[in-house]
Design a protein around this nucleic acid. Structure first.
Lengths: 232, 232
DNA sequence: CGTCCATTTGAGGTGGATCAACCCTAGTGG
DNA sequence: CCACTAGGGTTGATCCACCTCAAATGGACG
């Protein structure tokens, strides 16, 4: 026990192979891996700034701290499909393979926490719980993608907008109100619609009293049940 | 060495915690986990028979031996979105959570190999390589889903059919010809189109000499380059 | 207060859906 | 061996939900 200060590495090794957190910031990255010793870095992106490109090597995994991010694919002529919006707390950019398969951009000024992909891989190789968590996160993305395929392939415009509103309400409503970070075009590219169709659907829901506006992006749902009925 | 026959379990334990395969069939399930000691069972389903339902507990993981399977979601009024077709060699029904999120049906008479989900989980808890493989399989499904979202949200009918043909050509062409196991309605429900639109697109490609038929489901691609050009 | 971009709204066009025959072809039974 | 049948596939005619193009309105910010 007298030599304890010299043995810190050995002591850490005894804790089931895990390394105790060295910095408080590490704990804040709990959404990724629990409390393994990983160094998280903070970084900021301005509105519309690219975070990484499609097919770019996946060097980091990100977590939104504040702001919002869109992940998307482009066709050669510019048509865009947004696969997901990432909001505060969400992890994005996690890949099992070597490269990102969608590009990512900040929708508004955004700050993220990030860890090196390699350090996560290393932790996963040591700690089965970490490996399990990474799998579960990818499976969560897959679940969302499967739900979204149903929306894109089979739902009507009004059903898509209703689904979108309920999703955003669940994910970012505060005190019954949601402040959408994205524009109508982003919503359209997420739902496989044009921005005009999105606008018309929202206007119609407003006229029916199902939602209220205070500014185009501040929406309050006044009747979630009727919105659920409009969703298929 | 004299006691070896009595020590088989101990010897196995020494091999990095892995258990040596007990049956040849185990090796054939290599697509799932490599060569870990898992007992695989064979099973058969008739045409249009359900393999599991949406939201059903995920007790098994499957691999197609012969035949073909469709995974799909339904809306309450019967609209269907097929998320994926599973062909010989493909693994399906793998979940990170407790339940299946899409239903699965045999498209034609189909035989599968299956292992208990619990035994895979157990193996993943012991062997990091197994855990890595499970993650990679889910990530592969996610990649397909992301590509398919782009198709469903942003591609034209002709582009969708071209993408479909190139995918099937890659996955099941033998000697330059492919024998589609699924009907036009299945293709439509996969591509977010009606069966009539699929049929018209195929007829148009036939008229342009890009593909040839020998029976509605026997297709030979005569010009993959032009098909690629039709895909966005 | 003016500029700029996002949003809304309107008018008209169209790609794919819908509705409806018709046509194959594989299987069945006489 | 061949007529009959049923299910899948093709094709045609029409419709309509959503897109496109255009203009007006609104809101945020310098």
């Amino acid at each position: 026990m007298l030599t304890q200060t010299l043995n810190t590495p050995a002591i850490n090794t005894q804790i089931g192979g895990k390394i105790a957190p060295a910095h408080p910031v590490t704990d804040q990255f709990g959404a990724i891996v629990g409390h393994v010793g990983l160094v998280a870095t903070e970084f900021s992106y301005g509105k519309d700034e690219e975070i990484y490109g499609e097919e770019e090597a996946a060097e980091y995994v990100y977590q939104v701290v504040t702001g919002a991010v869109r992940s998307y694919k482009l066709l050669s002529d510019g048509r865009r499909q947004i696969g997901a919006f990432h909001l505060p707390g969400d992890v994005f950019g996690l890949e099992s393979g070597p490269a990102h398969r969608l590009a990512a951009e900040a929708i508004i000024d955004t700050s993220v926490r990030l860890v090196k992909r390699a350090s996560l891989e290393k932790a996963a190789g040591t700690d089965v719980q970490v490996a399990r968590k990474l799998w579960a996160m990818t499976a969560g993305e897959l679940r969302h993608a499967e739900d979204h395929m149903l929306l894109l392939g089979r739902k009507t415009a009004m059903e898509r907008v209703a689904t979108f509103l309920l999703e955003m309400d669940r994910r970012l409503a505060v005190a019954g109100m949601m402040a959408l970070p994205m524009c109508r075009r982003d919503i359209g590219d997420y739902l496989g619609l044009t921005l005009e169709t999105v606008s018309r659907a929202l206007s119609q829901l407003h006229a029916q009293g199902i939602l209220g506006f205070s500014g185009a992006r501040q929406i309050v749902l006044r009747n979630r049940q009727r919105l659920h009925n409009l969703d298929a």
